[in-house]
């Protein structure tokens, strides 16, 4: 017996501890809510969250469906990945599109990013939650992403109109989560609250979790617009005078609507290279998101209105 081995095994490693915490949260939701749902936004955080859900209920399947609020402006590769994932895991996938927004012709180019996000994402999400009467919804947000998220509870209460009141949140002690809601009210649940971006990538690598290929570098057609590299994903993107798509070696750190998500120039084609790049990055992942910069506390404002 080598006595120096014992202390290592007596404690969970960092990622194992985060994993256990997330699983605990998910089981609590499955046990206490009538009709939960998992918001699936196809990105790396959603992939990790879904992987954790598969673990939490094994050998059963997660006892809730996935919901994707489709703004109709996601990258084509995201949609293909979404459908393939639900099929591979044998899970029910609900796709909701705000048809009213489609009829009104809302789009990120002409309507502006703020209105587009408000109508197609926030309103669409609220419609879907109301339509199916979900009383709990998982989201993949992390506290290290943004200042107002750092302030949010793991179980975050929403009124019947989906509003968040940041000044009046339920105290959240130990591992005890207050899950009580009245009809119409709901809770947004964030099982990845205590994960950092590095944790997520490291976990993707350790567990070999499938992610959308857009995270890997490839030659893609992009235009430089307002300081961001926007990929021309389909013919709906109109070229401005003087613009023409350029084939550049790029990848994405986060994924959203293609016209609102900036690519970064990078040669990283393996997971190891992605993580290495991440470790020396000097800008945050959300920097590529056009919508966060509208105004300084725009995330808090969107969240109060029902954004995830």
């Amino acid at each position: 017996m080598n006595s120096s081995v014992a202390p290592v095994a007596s404690r969970l490693t960092h990622l194992k501890r985060l994993e256990a915490e997330s699983i605990h949260i998910m089981r609590e939701v499955a046990a206490e809510f009538r009709n939960p749902v998992m918001l699936y936004s196809i990105g790396k955080d959603s992939s990790v969250m879904l992987h954790l859900a598969m673990k939490a209920f094994y050998p059963s399947l997660p006892p809730f469906p996935l919901l994707h609020v489709d703004t109709t402006w996601k990258f084509k590769e995201m949609i293909a990945f979404r459908d393939e994932t639900a099929k591979r895991l044998g899970l029910k996938l609900i796709v909701h599109i705000n048809e009213d927004g489609v009829r009104r012709g809302i789009n990120p180019f002409d309507s502006g990013s703020a209105l587009h996000t408000q109508v197609m994402k926030t309103e669409g999400l609220k419609q879907a939650l109301d339509k199916y009467g979900f009383d709990a919804a998982f989201g993949g947000a992390r506290r290290d992403e943004e200042k107002s998220r750092a302030k949010e509870r793991v179980f975050s209460f929403r009124t019947a109109t989906h509003a968040w009141d940041p000044k009046n949140q339920r105290p959240e002690l130990w591992r005890l989560y207050n899950t009580r809601v009245r009809p119409g009210e709901s809770i947004r649940v964030f099982p990845l609250s205590n994960w950092t971006e590095l944790d997520v990538w490291q976990y993707v690598m350790m567990e070999d979790i499938p992610i959308v290929p857009l995270y890997y570098a490839k030659k893609r057609p992009v235009v430089e617009r307002d300081g961001a590299l926007i990929m021309v994903d389909d013919e709906r993107m109109k070229m401005r005078p003087g613009e023409s798509p350029d084939m550049r070696l790029v990848r994405f750190r986060t994924l959203g609507c293609y016209p609102l998500t900036g690519a970064i120039e990078s040669p990283a084609i393996t997971m190891e290279e992605i993580v290495s790049e991440m470790l020396i990055a000097r800008t945050s992942e959300r920097q590529g998101r056009v919508i966060d910069h509208d105004e300084n506390s725009s995330m808090e404002k969107k969240k109060r209105e029902g954004y995830f």
């Binding site: 290290d144 200042k147 107002s148 940041p166 000044k167 950092t196 808090e300």
Partner: peptide, 30 residues
Amino acid sequence: LVDGLEAEREQGITIDVAYRFFATDRRKFI
């Protein structure tokens, strides 16, 4: 940096608990 809520920045006070993460060569911190 940590007073992330609008009301907190306006009033210059902390209202709710914020969780931040950092690490050094020796330890991780929440």
